[in-house]
Design a protein around this nucleic acid. Structure first.
Lengths: 236, 236
DNA sequence: ATGCGCCCCCGACTATGGTCGGAGGCGCAT
DNA sequence: ATGCGCCTCCGACCATAGTCGGGGGCGCAT
């Protein structure tokens, strides 16, 4: 599962020497955010480092900039979004740039889901600085980084499959699925997006094909499953 | 919020003197289950006490018996069902018998939801024995029991309303809603229940009316909301 | 017994959801 | 330039979902 189709100018041998672009850090913990920023700057690969404390802010920064960032560090458990959903949305807004997940939850399934959703790496939040450095350099070289102790596992996990399918949706398809998950009718969706109802229907059809389901109801079930992909706390 | 339409034979003044029927304890923690059983027996109001360690077993015991129990003690967080859903299903199978919720989660909203779903009382799991005794006697007298420190609160909570609506469904309606939540089509549901598709549609219509929604998609959203009515664990 | 309310059942009708085929635009490789 | 693939868009057609009105059974109160 290693990308080899990395495109790079012939002036760069293996790792970009310096200033391959700007980076974005998304974390709601200010101090940790700073620490990540410093780590990135110490590598001197990035011309600038921006930060955001929630997903909305991150998406806004992406919009505001005229160029895509060279790297994104993303914390799960953001205040305004839960689960892998944030990753999927972020990935959709910057499909080319690699995203490293930084999280305190190091459950094997979470990691697998994060990779399935298109992230380029996963670093436990308690890692030492040089681990972060390693991860960033690995990903700069076009590899996927996973922490030690992560087992590749069999791919036939139903939930992982669902996540992979969800992240394969187009922007427009994702927007429509979101509206479906709010219980809206095709007609309302068409009005919201200013397109014909027939178009919405066509999108719904291809969404269902990608998610491998037969009705919009099943589609929302798959979508929900990804958002609640935590082992619920067991308590006696 | 106190029931006054309690029906009782004129040989019983206020509290049943003895043997008003059998009782059922549903809890997956064996020791605690025993303790509850002993507490019930010490009251000498019940001719027999049965126990179950999961919802399926509880429903089976209800089916097996030819009479409805006089009281049910139910633990939330059972292995085979999550949230208030178990309470609703149990209540539907024994609509007449009062149910006391015994749970370690004493969140105000959970309690409110439990009452909205038709339970007759809520007792924190760490309570002393005489608290349990009080609760049981209160409920035997036809009252609702809530722990001290519980504030009645305003009723306009959206989630509480949803739960109350959910528990107002008929057996057949609940069964159909369950199948809808598995993504089945009306035709399949009709086949499963051996009724005409037109009948299923009619049920769906009245389900939507009761849940106050306009489409089956919105109906499943309401149903899901009740199942995940936990504050998700916040972790940095 | 009679009426009332509730539940379950159903057929015929309308609205909405989903499929099929096709148009136009855009990036990309040759 | 030309062809290929992908995305977005759309109209016409069929399947499914939802509404309306009504029949029959059952418990319950008067």
């Amino acid at each position: 599962m290693v990308m080899e189709t990395e495109k790079m100018t012939d002036t760069a041998p293996t790792v970009m020497p310096q200033s391959s672009g700007w980076a974005l850090v998304v974390d709601d913990h200010p101090l940790f955010c700073d620490a990540l920023e410093l780590t990135l700057k110490s590598l001197q690969n990035f011309s600038e480092v921006q930060t955001a404390d929630c997903l909305e802010a991150a998406l806004a920064k992406l919009d505001a900039s005229n160029s895509a960032p060279a790297l994104i560090l993303l914390d799960l458990n953001l205040p305004d979004v839960n689960g892998l959903d944030g990753l999927i949305r972020l990935k959709r807004s910057a499909s080319k740039t690699p995203i490293i997940i930084v999280s305190s939850m190091t459950d094997n399934n979470i990691i697998k889901g994060a990779i399935a959703a298109g992230s380029s790496g996963f670093v436990p939040k308690h890692s030492a600085r040089n681990v972060f450095r390693d991860a960033i350099e690995q990903i700069g070289a076009g590899n996927i980084y996973t922490p030690q102790g992560f087992v590749e596992g069999q791919e036939d996990d139903e939930e992982t499959l669902a996540i992979a399918r969800l992240s394969s949706l187009t922007n427009q398809q994702a927007r429509i699925l979101e509206l479906i998950c709010e219980g809206k009718l095709n007609k309302q969706i068409a009005y919201d997006l200013s397109i014909a109802e027939a178009t919405v229907k066509a999108h719904v059809t291809s969404i269902m094909r990608k998610l491998n389901v037969q009705s919009r109801t099943q589609a929302v079930l798959v979508a929900q499953e990804a958002k609640f992909s935590k082992p619920l706390p067991k308590e006696t």
